[in-house]
Write a protein that binds this DNA or RNA. Structure first.
Length: 220
DNA sequence: ATCCCGAGGG
DNA sequence: CCCTCTGGAT
């Protein structure tokens, strides 16, 4: 996508939602980390439903370890991949206590040493908790970037590299959330709702599937 | 049947 | 690169 169009793309999403935030609920950086780990291949709404009860009493690694894997599983049974996630969250909590003084590390390499934490999760924690200019590429960002032509890449890493390089300064901290919210509510996976898309004229997908709207002269 | 703020292992 | 883990919503 052309440089001027990239700027205009973000400018419009920013105008509609000046300060976008994550829809994952958390009470501190530790619970944020846990929520993001739990969110893999699951909806934010589904994760929130489970974590509301969990985070009411468990808000730090020590409490999580005391709850135990079986106890955690009973809280997250309704979330996909819950066996692996429960194991990872308990292991990750032990590691935070043993190697990081009970605190969540704030650099990407350290975060990625935690079980269940990959590049995308680390990028989300850094962006949401610290306001870092990271570009987590999830299913929505990957789809929106490729479909619209904003950043075409065959892998999530390729897309992240392009976003990191091309995103204009005023939009760098929130770009991730604008793309994800646009993907979740408008540029949906199965049936994108192009009729209410604010950037339809900048989109590479629109011309092929939906012809440009022709408004009859009679109603103009 | 497809998708949801993926990661780890082969 | 591929596959598996997994329940809930649509």
């Amino acid at each position: 996508m052309k440089k001027a169009d990239i700027f205009e793309f973000y400018r419009r999403l920013a105008e509609l939602n000046p300060s976008p935030e994550t829809e994952l609920e958390s009470v501190n950086i530790y619970t944020l980390l846990v929520a993001v780990v739990l969110s893999a291949q699951s909806t934010d709404a589904g994760v929130n439903k489970a974590t509301r009860a969990l985070f009411a009493t468990v808000r730090d690694p020590q409490a999580m370890v005391e709850l135990g894997e079986a106890g955690l599983k009973s809280h997250i049974k309704t979330i996909g991949l819950f066996n692996t996630k429960a194991r990872n969250v308990i292991a990750l909590s032990h590691l935070l206590i043993d190697k990081f003084g009970g605190e969540v590390p704030t650099d990407r390499d350290a975060l990625e040493t935690l079980p269940g934490v990959g590049r995308k999760t680390a990028n989300v924690v850094l962006n949401v908790a610290l306001g870092a200019e990271t570009f987590p590429v999830d299913t929505h960002v990957f789809r929106v970037a490729n479909r619209t032509g904003l950043a075409k890449g065959k892998t999530v890493m390729a897309v992240e590299t392009i976003l990191e390089r091309q995103t204009p300064q005023p939009f760098r901290t929130h770009a991730h959330h604008w793309l994800i919210l646009h993907g979740r509510y408008t540029c949906k996976a199965r049936t994108p709702e192009c009729w209410r898309c604010p950037v339809i004229d900048l989109c590479a997908f629109r011309p092929k599937s939906l012809p440009p709207a022709k408004i009859p002269a009679s109603i103009r």
